[in-house]
Design a protein around this nucleic acid. Structure first.
Lengths: 208, 208
DNA sequence: GGTAAAATCGCAGTCGCTGCAACTTTGCAC
DNA sequence: GTGCAAAGTTGCAGCGACTGCGATTTTACC
């Protein structure tokens, strides 16, 4: 009878759900405020007030003010890693990376409005931008780690690192272009194009 | 008779030289303190005291505490851009990038001790690391800009961006490997290797 | 119903950083 | 050398992010 009483306290537990919920409340409140008054023009106290929590509690949920507008980043990393984990071991590493990132790019395309909103905030403030780069650097670590575990490593560390770093370079360049050109070309297409160029080689034979 | 009186107040002017000097004093003091007590364990007041200036004056020289340990970054960017500017226009962009970065890598190799010292500080503190990534992102902007001005652009922005981003990925991966392997392989060699791999292509034919 | 853990919160304090305004030094023209 | 404007130096007062601590409340589970 346990799994039926309220059909609520099952999977993640009521406690965890409440926490998740509050986290989202804080995030939403922060996003709204920052969008209106800018990142520097918004204080943690204001966010806390808008989210109906004590200022002190904010830091129980987010380590820094920057992190509240980058709350989606950890989910994104999970997504990438999951996708990469699903690729067959036999596949060449760069193929696997491309396939994974193309799928993720489709996600991005689907969540466009939300993303654009966040990009605007990130690009408008230097410290937020810096923090986002730091988080992406963590992605690179994770990617390099996964790639290193596969059979196809070259030098103990150089190759996976280079692959991971290049893949993220593709993703970043694509996203930037995507935003700059007002989404005329679908993001997955751009990602495929970038990965293709690096697959072909950037040597003299390459550029267009 | 002007250019001879003291042979000092000529090129950059006495004023500018004094400023440069003091800047270096502050930097040196900061580096020592941070090395001993850690970045978080060192306050701006302490740095100011060690450099014999008022705390307020510190912020006349450096916008943030992070920047004092990253003071060498702007010189490095200048170096890269100068090197890239010296490459012939006829050269393929990736070739030009490789040649430039190999030269810069030689600089790095020569200044190894100082660099390693800074790397240790940067890697030991999250916010310093974040700031360093942000500065490198500025390098990418500059590089992409220079590449975009050359004749060999593909898409209005995508291609130069991808090239710049990839070049920096090579540099970063090389440096990391260089440090991790205790400098057994010369940095220029590693850089050449990374650039070569991207030139050849990361496709299935590629990886070692 | 009791208990341990998790979550909320207030308080006091540190530190990075800023705007402002005063004061000193320097470079340069006359 | 005198004078003047610009550049550099400093103190002060204040804001806001963030932390450690400890108290209090809420939740999960037996």
């Amino acid at each position: 009878m346990r799994c039926q009483d309220v059909a609520v306290s099952v999977e993640p537990g009521l406690r965890a759900r409440k926490k998740q919920e509050r986290r989202r409340t804080i995030e939403a409140a922060a996003l709204d405020l920052v969008e209106e008054h800018g990142f520097d023009g918004t204080t943690v106290d204001q966010i806390a007030a808008a989210a109906d929590i004590a200022p002190r509690t904010f830091f129980y949920y987010f380590p820094t003010k920057e992190d509240v507008v980058l709350a989606d980043y950890s989910d994104r990393l999970d997504r990438i890693l999951a996708e990469l984990g699903d690729r067959p071991e036999t596949e060449a590493p760069w193929e696997a990376l491309e396939a994974s990132f193309v799928v993720v790019a489709a996600d991005y395309e689907a969540a466009r409005d939300d993303l654009v909103r966040r990009f605007a905030i990130i690009n408008a403030n230097a410290t937020v931008y810096a923090r986002s780069l730091q988080l992406q650097s963590g992605w690179e670590d994770s990617l390099a780690d996964v790639l290193g575990r596969r059979g196809d490593v070259g030098d103990e560390d150089l190759q996976p690192r280079l692959l991971a770093s290049s893949a993220l370079a593709c993703m970043r360049s694509s996203i930037r272009h995507w935003v700059l050109t007002e989404y005329t070309t679908p993001l997955p297409t751009l990602v495929r194009r970038c990965f293709g160029r690096l697959a072909q080689g950037l040597g003299p034979a390459g550029p267009t």
